[in-house]
Design a protein around this nucleic acid. Structure first.
Length: 583
RNA sequence: GCGCCCGUAGCUCAACUGGAUAGAGCAUCAGCCUUCUAAGCUGAAUGUUGCAGGUUCGAGUCCUGCCGGGCGCGCCA
């Protein structure tokens, strides 16, 4: 709907060649906005004030000349100039009626834009280490990423969702040894469980279910002999390293690998199931191991080397990240010959671009913010633009129950997994609350509110509006009445109540909200919009009956609430929240 | 110490990339069900936007410096 006004202003400006220079680098669409106050009309543009300086003219005079150049339009009732130079547009109700018709014609596609070819977006999110179940912090990344993906698709971008599985490196050895020790424990061989191992109960579960074919049985003596002390008496890392060495020698590389890979697969499958139940799915699960297997890391390092972007120092290979604005140079191959995590990270992002994705979005936990500069440096060093990589940081989540902050460490608190959270508050509430705040703000997640089935709870408030509309149509059927949508469309002019105008206005904003939310990667705008829309509906519901004797009025009102149902369902769909017919 | 994120009503949060009188919900108080779901609605009250400067027609929003909180600064992943 906004484009009606933007087009008028654009055409008017074309009539004023003397302003062409001043308006050259101004997006007219961006100057048009909804008014905050109904007395200012429906839309306003601040273009006269924006052009005042470059055109060296008084904003009100400029506004007057723009208004004079505006063509007459059936959708516009009146235009006036207000304040320092705002141009206010009062639209004809017919424009809103046409929008309602569009909503019902387009249905679930309302608010979606035609698909475009580019940029092709690779959206990487969650990417939690496959060393244990997802915790509540990952849930936020999952909800945010999934919703941003939906938003970007809604505005037409091709989006590829990817989960990067960190299934290589030392953490896999630690996982394998943790499981092995629990297996030994089950067989009555007690080895001091390492401080640095994974201690969660799920490790025991894996030890129970793992396929032991090909895993050598060992004696207690062979494991315990020659082990150094664990912390606090000894060194935690040395103890862990010694145990990993034991696993390697006693089980053999193949045997240890068997335990490691099975553990990995069980955890990865569990994560995938968890996310699928949460409505979060991926197009690819990209394995870090595969980077090594396909030599992608060596390929990337070779590209750097050819470009003179590697140097040797202290026996290690370094990448001169400072040349690209990072704080310090980074090691890619350690003196012991092992490649660093940064090497695989750089190769991974290189690979993303090589696979043909134009724009890379990484959704990361806030504790990863240090990586942006170096990975971006890596891309630039390999000849890509640093801007190709966009990082959205998701801040931490704090759970509250009974007004108190909950401890969420694996050891002290029992409550820390995403699965537990979903079981307690439900998927809808979880998906909703996770995106209700800007991603760069800390999130206080109040379990009591999320669970409450009352007006305190915005999820239910919005869903209830949807269910109420469905209920109205059930009532209609019970009274053996039928809604004639054509008649409804023809008599929309009968909708003259203030609540009806307010609802129509809110509905017409939906496409703008989707675009805003997508462009800013800001689902919380959509959340707040839906809350306001539901409020407009509930207010209307309480003020006026829809199923009235006057057939024409009834059909028109049902037309309006049908459109409301469509918009609420579409908005909730983007958030990954269900739109129930009945509550 | 350096870097990133943040600071708005008693609480939880908005404010459409610089616009008009900074808005919602919760909590508090007063009302509304013989009528489509009261999981709802109506009304009342709440501010030195952390502090101090600066930029301009105009600043919660941009810049600088403080104060306060969170996170990060490995040849770990």
């Amino acid at each position: 709907m906004k484009h009606i006004v933007a087009q008028l202003v654009t055409d008017a400006l074309a009539e004023l060649p003397e302003l062409a220079d001043a308006a050259a680098d101004l997006s007219i669409e961006s100057t048009v906005e909804r008014t905050r106050d109904a007395s200012h009309g429906d839309f306003a543009t601040n273009i006269a004030m924006r052009l005042a300086k470059p055109a060296r003219k008084n904003p009100r005079e400029l506004a007057a000349s723009i208004v004079a150049a505006l063509a007459d339009d059936a959708d516009v009732d009146s235009v006036d100039i207000a304040g320092p130079g705002f141009i206010n547009f009062h639209l004809n109700l017919s424009a809103f009626h046409a929008e309602l018709e569009t909503i019902l014609l387009q249905g679930e596609n309302y608010g979606r834009q035609a698909s475009r070819d580019r940029p092709k977006i690779l959206l990487e999110f969650v990417s939690a280490n496959p060393t244990g179940p997802l915790h509540v912090g990952h849930g936020r990344g999952a909800s945010f990423g999934a919703t941003v993906g939906n938003l970007l698709e809604a505005v037409g971008y091709p989006v590829h969702r990817e989960y990067y599985v960190n299934d290589a490196g030392r953490q896999m050895d630690i996982l394998g040894v943790s499981v092995w020790l629990r297996m030994l424990e089950k067989d009555g061989i007690a080895v001091g469980f390492p401080q640095g191992g994974y201690r969660g109960g799920y490790i025991r579960d894996i030890a129970e279910t793992i396929n032991t074919d090909g895993v050598t049985s060992v004696s207690a003596e062979s494991v315990l002999s020659g082990l150094p002390a664990d912390a606090p008496e000894g060194d935690k890392e040395a103890y862990l390293e010694a145990l990993i060495g034991k696993a390697r020698t006693l089980l053999g590389e193949a045997g240890f690998d068997h335990v490691r890979q099975q553990s990995l697969e069980l955890i990865r499958d569990d994560i995938e199931d968890d996310l699928a139940e949460f409505g979060v799915t991926f197009d690819t699960w990209y394995s870090e191991q595969s980077l090594t297997k396909t030599n992608r890391i060596d390929d990337a390092l070779e590209v750097l080397r050819k470009r003179g972007m590697l140097y040797e120092k202290d026996g290690a290979s370094w990448f001169p990240a400072t040349d690209f604005g990072d704080e310090k140079d980074r090691v890619v191959i350690r003196a012991n010959g092992i490649k660093t995590y940064f090497a695989s990270d750089i190769a991974y992002h290189f690979d993303k671009r090589e696979r043909g994705f134009d724009h890379l979005i990484d959704i990361l936990g806030a504790d990863h913010h240090g990586y942006l500069a170096r990975v971006r440096a890596g891309l630039e060093a390999m000849g890509y633009k640093g801007d190709d990589l966009e990082v959205e940081l998701v801040q931490f989540v704090t759970l509250y129950r009974g007004g108190k902050k909950m401890q969420m460490s694996t050891r002290s608190g029992e409550f820390d997994t995403l699965r537990q959270l979903r079981a307690e508050v439900g998927n809808d509430a979880a998906r909703f609350y996770y995106v209700s705040r800007s991603n760069d703000q800390h999130l206080d997640f109040d379990l009591d509110v999320a669970k409450s089935q009352s007006s305190d709870n915005p999820v239910y408030y919005i869903q209830y509006a949807h269910a109420r509309i469905a209920s109205v149509f059930r009532q209609l059927a019970e009274k053996s009445l039928k809604w004639n949508d054509t008649e409804g469309r023809n008599h929309l002019a009968l909708l003259v109540e203030p609540q009806e105008k307010a609802l129509m206005t809110s509905l017409s904003r939906y496409p703008e909200l989707i675009e805003l939310s997508a462009n800013n990667r800001a689902p919380q705008h959509l959340v707040h919009y839906l809350r306001d829309l539901a409020n407009d509906f509930h207010t209307y519901y309480n003020a006026h009956a829809f199923i009235v004797d006057d057939t024409m009025l009834r059909d028109a009102r049902l037309y309006l609430i049908s459109a409301t149902r469509v918009v609420i369902a579409n908005g909730l769909g983007i958030l990954g929240v269900s739109a129930p017919e009945k509550m």
